[in-house]
């Protein structure tokens, strides 16, 4: 069955007709040609398809496009403004935080969403004191970064440099 939907993708309003079975990821990639989110596993397990969905990081492979009718999607490409890389993208380049690059758009979106969660004071699994104020300390510990980024796998194992890139952003 088909449905007419509208998505605002990287700032542009896009109307499309999709089969209800189409995932948001397939709608972006195959219908709209927005190929920056990648399909690694299609089961929520790798994070390569991560975008900012209505401002929050989310996987796009386990949600139907029709269920996101009206949503705002920002992909890694949409983080670039007027040709300027986002500070997180900048840090990934400066720290060599990738090898093949397949996981990178998902990693970058995930870092941006993760930093917003920190600013909003969200704790994580490794936060020792749940009642403490979170997000005000710029020198977030490495174990916090690792835990908060555990939904993004990297088959090239660029984790060390991804960590360094995130550390650069949080300490600047």
């Amino acid at each position: 069955m088909e449905a007419d939907i509208t998505l605002v993708v990287d700032g542009e309003r896009r109307s499309l007709t999709v089969d209800t079975r189409t995932s948001l990821l397939d709608a972006l990639r195959d219908h709209l040609g927005v190929t920056s989110p990648k399909k690694g596993c299609d089961h929520g397990q790798c994070g390569a398809c991560t975008v900012l969905l209505d401002g929050r990081r989310a996987t796009t492979c386990l949600t139907f496009a029709v269920a996101q009718d009206g949503a705002e999607v920002i992909t890694a490409v949409g983080l670039v403004t007027d040709g300027e890389l986002h500070p997180v993208q900048e840090a990934f380049c400066e720290n060599d935080a990738f090898q093949c690059g397949f996981c990178t758009p998902g990693q970058v979106c995930s870092v941006v969403g993760m930093l917003d969660e920190l600013r909003a004071g969200h704790p994580s699994h490794v936060t020792a004191d749940l009642t403490a104020e979170i997000g005000t300390d710029p020198a977030i510990e490495d174990d916090e970064i690792r835990e908060r980024m555990s939904g993004n796998l990297c088959r090239c194992g660029a984790y060390g440099n991804i960590l360094a890139a995130v550390r650069q952003v949080t300490s600047s």
């Binding site: 996987t59 704790p123 993004n152």
Partner: peptide
């Protein structure tokens, strides 16, 4: 503050981008 076991259980599950959904 009042039910830390619940916060901890949720934070131990899945990933940041799945918990948002």
């Amino acid at each position: 503050e009042r039910y830390p076991a619940l916060s901890r259980a949720l934070l131990a599950g899945a990933s940041g981008q799945l918990r948002n959904l």
